[in-house]
């Protein structure tokens, strides 16, 4: 299987602070769904933003399909930000059209189907929606692309448990050998069944990258329990 995401010696610091990522090495293959896990401030969002091309590294390299983040990688990386980025005056249906204009790999029919299945009216404006519903719209937009790499930053944090299941099922059904999915989340117990790998970030480095079943086998407990043990406060 091909390597889709590769970081070598990746370093990022924000001005005047200690580095958030310190010579981080990571490699993720196609066909894998990985959980990016770590305590607050461990660098999860920074790593995702670097892969999405929103930040530039201060040291080392990050590559998607062998390319440094840029215009070409943005065409094949689907990024779901952790916070609202869509303009509030837009209607859900207008957002779908907007994404379809921007991204060649966007599947309008699929987006329409997901809106229907989640009971979201395409005529509704984003600012009149609840926070959870807005998050669902953002996720629908991200998952309706046929990308090589999906970067989902806290995709299920704000939605109800039933929608969580729907979202996870959507991710599983979207699975393809050619694509990799990175899910950053604190809700480990909810997602660990759908993960191939758990990636633990700690102090700006990868503390552990391991198959979920291998981890369960070795430790006799789930990823959530291991996380609580490793990062006990």
């Amino acid at each position: 299987m091909e390597t889709i995401l590769k970081c070598s010696g990746l370093t990022k610091r924000y001005s005047g602070s200690l580095p958030v990522l310190r010579e981080l090495n990571l490699s993720l293959q196609g066909g894998k769904i990985a959980g990016l896990l770590g305590p607050n401030g461990s660098g999860k969002t920074t790593l995702i933003k670097l892969a999405a091309g929103l930040l530039t590294p201060d040291g080392g390299a990050i590559e998607i399909d062998g390319q440094a983040p840029g215009i070409e990688t943005k065409a094949k990386v689907s990024y779901l930000p952790e916070r609202d980025t869509l303009p509030g005056w837009m209607r859900a249906g207008e957002n779908v059209a907007y994404y379809a204009d921007f991204f060649e790999d966007f599947d309008r029919a699929k987006a329409g189907e997901m809106l229907r299945e989640l009971g979201i009216d395409p005529a509704m404006r984003l600012r009149t929606m609840s926070k959870g519903t807005r998050e669902k719209v953002q996720l629908i937009l991200a998952m309706s692309r046929k990308a090589r790499l999906y970067l989902l930053d806290e995709p299920i944090g704000g939605v109800d448990p039933a929608a969580r299941d729907y979202i996870l099922t959507t991710i599983i059904q979207n699975y393809s050998e050619e694509a990799a999915v990175v899910i950053s989340t604190h809700l480990i117990a909810d997602v660990e069944k759908v993960l191939d790998e758990a990636i633990f970030l700690s102090g700006g480095q990868v503390a552990l990258q391991m198959g979920v079943d291998e981890l369960r086998e070795e430790r006799g407990m789930g990823v959530d329990a291991v996380f609580r043990e490793v990062f006990r406060c």
């Binding site: 299941d165 099922t169 599983i172 699975y175 993960l195 191939d196």
Partner: peptide, 14 residues
């Protein structure tokens, strides 16, 4: 495989 994985809510590779 994909359908069964979705039904069980697990990773398709697993």
């Amino acid at each position: 495989v994909r359908e069964m994985a979705a039904e069980a809510g697990v990773n398709p590779n697993t």
